[in-house]
Amino acid sequence: MASDEVGSAGADSEIDLLSPAFEPHELLRPVFPGAPDPVADRVSKGRPPNRWLLIAIGVLLAILAVDGAGIAANAALSSLYNPGRAVTDYFAAQSRGSVGGMMANATFLPGADPAFFSSSAVAAMMAVPQNRDLKDVHIISIQSIDYSTETVNVSMTWAGTSRRQAYTVRRDNSRVHELIYHSWRVDIPFATVQLALPNQPGAMAVDNINTASPDPDSIQVIQGYHEVTMIANFAYDTSTRLIDAVGYPGMASFQSTVGSIAAYHASKAVTLAFSACGSADDTCLEHTYSARPGYYWSWELPGYGHVEGTTYRYALVGDPTVGMILKVTTQPGIVTAIGSCASTITINARVYKFRGDWTAKLTWSSGDFTAELSDYCFDVRDDSGTGTV
């Protein structure tokens, strides 16, 4: 009976036994080896990536990388090959004394004498210390003249002097880099050095290179400092002038003072002329003359009047060449000399004193002077004393 009650109660019951509702739960990753990852599985089942899009992005990045490298390379090459760089490179080479560097970056505009614009002339110029004394070279501005010519304005300190210069810089079509980048060359102008020379000057040289003309009025040289030399000749010693020919024409002036070697030869020639004595002369210096027995001489001596005697002797007092003045004439090999002299005439042991001047024409021949002497050493009484000793 118990079972029937149970069954009856179940049939007549108002309770509806429903199935439990679905509640989502996070999937637990299996813990056994080799089990699939549910999350990864879901992702793998999403939209596959666009392969062509990835390729396009890669190509774009490659183009940007190449373009960036090209821009950097272009900037580097442009900084190497441009008018301003040619100017700074030229002066950098000059400050180092690098002849090759100067020749590579410049065109030396030639003057009248090609010898002063060669690589040898540049090397000789670099031996002058002032040409290597270059500092603070700065480009001020660059103006375009045409597609192949620029004007570069530059400031610098050259041999301690601040300067501003404008240089024409031209594209060098003979030197092309990476097909499109040209080297540039600076036009270095010549400077004119005016010469003020004495009569019959010696040969001229610039930085130890002789001029083509033996007696030039001016010399054209590379812009810079130069040593202009007048080389020794029969009349002058070697003389050198340091000339600034950077921003304006230079001037080299040489004095007409006769050199020490010429003065020595002139003094010797005048002394020999004073002492010259022929066999028939009766006025030779340092020679005593005596009258024949029963005879005597008479003189009208300047400042002393009438004097008679049986013996006499002419003599110079001191060296007549001391203080002499030499002048080179325009006549080849001819120098004139003038000087003063003091003298005495001793008559019968009495001394009469005189003073005067002398002149001489000196002719250079075979390495020495000969003198044609005219002396007036006995023309004026010497008033420094009584006239007698």
Rank of each mutant, 00 (worst) to 15 (best):
A266Q: 02
L80H: 03
V154L: 07
Y314V: 05
Q331P: 01
S183C: 11
F378L: 06
M126V: 08
L27Y: 05
N233S: 14
A337P: 03
S13G: 13
S298N: 10
T311I: 01
A235L: 10
I345E: 10
G160L: 14
P332Q: 15
Q143F: 03
T283Y: 08
S384D: 08
Q331H: 13
V87H: 00
S343E: 10
Q331V: 15
N74D: 14
P293A: 15
G160W: 14
M230D: 04
Q220F: 06
I231S: 12
E5T: 09
I338T: 15
Y167D: 04
T271C: 03
G34W: 05
A337Q: 07
T283A: 06
K361T: 13
K327L: 10
Q194H: 10
P110H: 05
G250N: 02
Q223V: 05
D67S: 14
S95V: 09
P48Q: 13
G385K: 01
H182W: 08
A360L: 00
Y167T: 03
E5C: 03
A166F: 05
R355C: 09
M251L: 12
R292I: 07
H25G: 06
R29W: 01
S343L: 01
T329I: 05
Q255A: 14
G318I: 09
R381K: 11
A115R: 13
A159H: 05
S79V: 08
S19E: 09
Y147H: 11
S95H: 06
A291C: 10
S44C: 02
C377W: 08
D172W: 02
T168D: 11
I55F: 10
N210P: 01
T149N: 11
S141W: 04
S340A: 13
G34M: 07
L197T: 05
V169L: 07
G7Y: 10
A62Q: 08
D187Y: 10
G202S: 13
H138F: 15
G68V: 06
P114D: 02
R47D: 03
T386H: 04
P216W: 12
D136K: 13
W358H: 13
I243E: 01
L179E: 12
T370V: 13
G202F: 04
D281E: 13
Q255C: 03
P332L: 15
K327T: 15
D319W: 00
A62V: 15
L17A: 12
S218G: 01
G356T: 12
S119M: 09
G385T: 07
T157G: 00
T370Q: 10
Q255G: 15
S374T: 08
R29D: 11
V66I: 14
A360F: 01
I231L: 15
D237K: 04
R163A: 11
I15F: 12
M126S: 11
Y248E: 13
H306S: 09
A21Q: 05
Y296H: 14
D172E: 04
V389A: 07
T283W: 06
I139C: 11
R170F: 07
V87Q: 00
M156D: 08
W299E: 02
G339H: 01
K45C: 03
S98D: 15
A123D: 09
M324Y: 06
G250Q: 03
A266R: 01
E150A: 15
R241M: 13
